[in-house]
Simulated scan of single mutants.
Amino acid sequence: MRSYQRSSPQALALVEDHDETLAAACRSVVQRSCWAGWACLETPLPAVPGVEHDWQAAQLAQGPLRFVARNQYKPGRAPQGETLTLLAHPDWSDQHLEDEPQIVACRLLEALAQTLPPGTALPRVGRLGAHRWRFAHPEHSTINAPAPDGDYRVTAAGLALCGDAWRGPRIEDAWLSGHHLGLALAAPHAQPTAPGDSHDL
């Protein structure tokens, strides 16, 4: 049984006493949960036939696990060794929302182990944990919504909202939403550049 979280409650608490338009926008968003696990392994993951040894990320369609990232391949992180981010499917996260973090972390790591070829074991785990994000996935992305709604919300009173709720679940979506809102707010105050002036350094 799905347990959708109706609305963006953290933003709603900020605006509902001041702007009903923004409050209604918050209430209209359906947020899904996400369990995010992490694991530090003592040695690298075993090689998988047919897969490059330095693969950086993988998406999975079945089971609890939907996404795996190998963080040591991100810029500047090679010295940290094999460290994994393990993101659960929204349905699974909703169903296990109140589980203990350590139990969830073990389940996600077990799901990863089951993707390996038979007889292949995961390395010894140094550290393991999980964090529950109750409001992680907006159910309906507005990435292609036309202006003025777009990927942020702003009212004539000067109050505005931005974030992943208005665009999509990735951290990049949250950043782009804020960037676009910043451009929109700054546009009315932009000063024309005089001929010959330059701000390029």
Rank of each mutant, 00 (worst) to 15 (best):
Y4R: 09
R6F: 15
P9G: 11
Q10M: 10
Q10K: 01
A11L: 10
L12G: 10
V15M: 01
V15E: 03
H18V: 15
H18P: 15
T21Q: 04
A25M: 03
R27D: 14
V29R: 04
G37M: 07
A39Y: 01
C40F: 06
T43W: 08
P44T: 02
L45T: 04
P49H: 05
W55I: 11
A58S: 11
A58N: 11
A58C: 06
L60W: 00
L65T: 00
R66W: 03
Q72P: 06
P75T: 07
G76P: 05
P79R: 08
L84A: 12
T85E: 04
T85Q: 02
D91P: 07
S93E: 08
D94C: 14
Q95S: 11
L97P: 05
L97I: 13
E100L: 00
E100I: 00
P101N: 13
A105L: 10
R107T: 06
L109H: 00
E110N: 08
L112V: 10
L112S: 13
Q114D: 13
Q114V: 08
T115F: 03
T115R: 07
L116Q: 11
G119D: 00
T120C: 14
A121P: 09
L122E: 15
V125T: 02
G126M: 05
L128F: 12
G129L: 12
A136I: 03
T142K: 04
P146D: 12
R153W: 02
R153Y: 01
A156W: 06
A157Y: 00
G168T: 04
R170F: 14
R170D: 12
E172N: 01
D173A: 13
D173L: 09
A184C: 05
L185T: 04
A187Q: 05
Q191H: 02
P192Y: 09
P195L: 15
D197Y: 02
D197A: 06
S198H: 06
